[in-house]
Amino acid sequence: MIRTLTGLIIVLVLGAVAAAVIPEMQMREELQGVGYSYVSRGMDDTGSSNLVTAVIVAYRGLDTLGEVVVLFCASTAVVLILTLYPIGIKASEPSRVVAFTAKVLPAPILLFGVYFIAHSHISPGGGFPGGTVIASVFLLVMLGSSSVPDGRGRLPAIESLAGLSFGLLGFWGIMTVGQFLNNAFLGTGTPGTIVSGGLIPLISIAIGAKVASEFSGVFKAFRNTGGTV
């Protein structure tokens, strides 16, 4: 009871702080500074009609690379701990509903995830969300079968390859125009078409493959009963 009340009090205090701060926030009607620059020049600079992806992958590509490294460290740590001290969540026999869902839904969800990644420069999407959608397909298939999936060595290989290609795509910019993660040296194409946005689609695919294989590896590690990953 004390723990419940403590939690409630913390939530109420946080709510009071938010209620006090939010009216003081000034909502700007017009964009200023770097935000204005991104919105007004973004499409010409990057050839991406999705400005969110343009900022994440092109303008702030270095930050995204750092984010990918952080995710890599986190997933490596989780998999390492679960390998040394295996939990070995038992693969119980799936119920009929789960088994049927795991047969029917993976293909459409997988297609959606791939679409989400491949069209990240045209419509709302991106490597991170698309990768998690693909990882959820892996999870669904895993829940639908009573056996432990065997992807020994392949998931880490995809993960490493995707991370490496992100870095190499960055270095490609250094080799050609002398700028790391330069987006536009291949030409940006017509915004709104599938082959546009310079390097953005390629980097999105790399991020998507990396995130998908990382999360899948973490899920697989939960089922790990000992032995090699």
């Binding site: 969110v52 989400f116 709302p124 999407g125 991170f128 969300p129 998690t132 990882a135 999870l139």
Partner: peptide, 18 residues
């Protein structure tokens, strides 16, 4: 913010719950 919505649905509602 459909892209954020997808991220929240797949990470927050599915993966974290699991």
């Amino acid at each position: 913010a459909p892209d954020v919505a997808i991220t929240e649905a797949s990470i927050g509602a599915v993966l974290a719950t699991m």
